[in-house]
């Protein structure tokens, strides 16, 4: 399986499941901060596995990987909550088959992008707008707004990540490098 077909499969079949997958991981882990990392792991395992051949049912394949990964991780953790492992062993039928994936037509997709843009902070939104609608590049954007190119790059990156989260059904909030949650976790140690 070459990378081009893998990428096509990943965007067409895996990404529309992101909302359900995130929901599933969140429900089965105790640490909210770990959800994004766990999802990243699951995507990685899914791509590696599919290289030998694409699965016939992407949904079943993806959630089986997620479930096994969560179980392995719980078992490896130094302090294992038996309840958590027991709950995970039982989730086979718990996998959310009812939640419809979102197949969007062009107009829905446009609306979703707009909603994602609305969700950004005004500064980031303006920069994404200049890039996508006015077609300005980083240098032109920096000149237009009277700020440095690095600042434009930085905000563009934040906007891109927040849009990706939003369009997959996540919160679409901009994640600042040092979150309150992380500080609290550090303070506990």
């Amino acid at each position: 399986m070459d990378d081009e077909s893998l990428e096509d499969w990943f965007c067409r079949e895996v990404l529309p499941l992101e909302r359900s997958l995130t929901h599933f991981i969140r429900r089965n882990t105790r640490v909210a901060d770990d959800v994004i990392d766990l999802r990243h792991d699951v995507y990685e395992l899914a791509i590696t596995g599919a290289r030998k051949g694409l699965p016939s049912s992407t949904r079943a394949y993806l959630f089986t990987i997620a479930r096994n990964h969560l179980i392995n991780r719980a078992k490896r953790a130094r302090i294992v909550s038996f309840d958590l492992v027991a709950d995970l062993e039982a989730i086979d039928k718990d996998i959310d088959f009812l939640e419809a994936e979102r197949h969007l037509d062009a107009r829905d997709a446009l609306r979703q992008v707009q909603a994602g843009l609305e969700n950004l902070s005004p500064r980031v939104r303006e920069i994404v707008r200049l890039r996508k609608i006015e077609g300005l590049d980083v240098r032109e954007t920096a000149e237009r707004l009277g700020i440095g190119k690095d600042a434009v790059n930085h905000q563009l990156m934040m906007g891109m990540k927040a849009l990706a989260d939003f369009m997959a059904g996540g919160p679409g909030k901009i994640v600042r490098p040092k979150s309150v949650g992380r500080r609290m976790k550090d303070a506990e140690k």
Binding site: A109, R129, I133
Partner: peptide, 30 residues
């Protein structure tokens, strides 16, 4: 690869707003 493909995909999707043309994007309802 997962991170790159994912961001590239949604960023490409976001090109759709260029269909709105110049001027302000109307606020979405959601």
């Amino acid at each position: 690869k997962a991170a790159y493909w994912r961001l590239k995909h949604s960023w490409r999707e976001a090109d759709r707003i260029s269909a709105l043309g110049h001027g302000r994007a109307e606020p979405g309802q959601a």
